[in-house]
């Protein structure tokens, strides 16, 4: 479990001592806070976030780069954290779903849109969608409908059939919604 030291730095969980691959000291910023840690060469960024820093909102769906559940912002752009080594994040700025809205803050407009449009069911893939779209939002301006659809195609959801995710995304970016599903 990670804990905050007296100097305000986050110290992650001690890594396993049996690891045969090389070790590296890394320093990075995670959700605005400085982090220093020792990581083994092969540690995936996903596992570093989840198991060393206890930031478990970033989920693992495939570890092949297909599903997007592990999406995070690396220097402001959305990337698959399962296709990134933890050591590659040395010196970088990382943001995860936990960094979108602080514990005492209201949900961001993006999160709120997923809530209002019921753009989530089990919620397992949701952080990946949020971070993908947060990356799109970082670039400023309103994306075209095609750009938005292209971003959404980079994340898998098995529950929703995507219809409400598209509604949520369009709401968040101020795009007109698709034809409302009509109830008789």
């Amino acid at each position: 479990m990670s804990f905050r030291g007296s100097e305000g730095q986050i110290h992650p969980t001690t890594p396993p001592l049996s690891e045969p691959s090389g070790w590296h000291d890394i320093s990075l910023t995670v959700n605005g806070e400085p982090v220093s840690a020792q990581v083994e060469s092969r540690l995936l960024l996903t596992d570093f976030l989840r198991h060393r820093l206890r930031l478990t909102g970033t989920h693992v769906g495939c570890e092949q780069g297909s599903c997007g559940a592990c999406s995070v912002l690396l220097d402001g752009v959305a990337v698959r954290s399962c296709l990134t080594l933890a050591v590659q994040a040395n010196g970088r700025d990382l943001r995860t779903v936990e960094g979108l809205a602080g514990p005492d803050e209201p949900l961001t407009a993006l999160q709120q849109a997923f809530h209002e449009q019921h753009g989530m069911q089990c919620g397992f893939c949701t952080p990946g969608f949020l971070m993908s779209l947060a990356g799109l939002a970082e670039h400023g301006g309103t994306p075209s409908s095609d750009e938005l659809d292209e971003h959404l195609a980079g994340n898998f959801c098995r529950c929703t059939g995507y219809v409400n995710i598209r509604k949520a995304a369009r709401q968040a970016f101020g795009l007109p919604g698709p034809e409302e599903a009509s109830r008789g």
Partner: peptide
Amino acid sequence: DDRLLRGQGCFVDDLD
């Protein structure tokens, strides 16, 4: 939703 949207869900692999 609120918990899940904040990355505070508690899936099996999230347990500490």
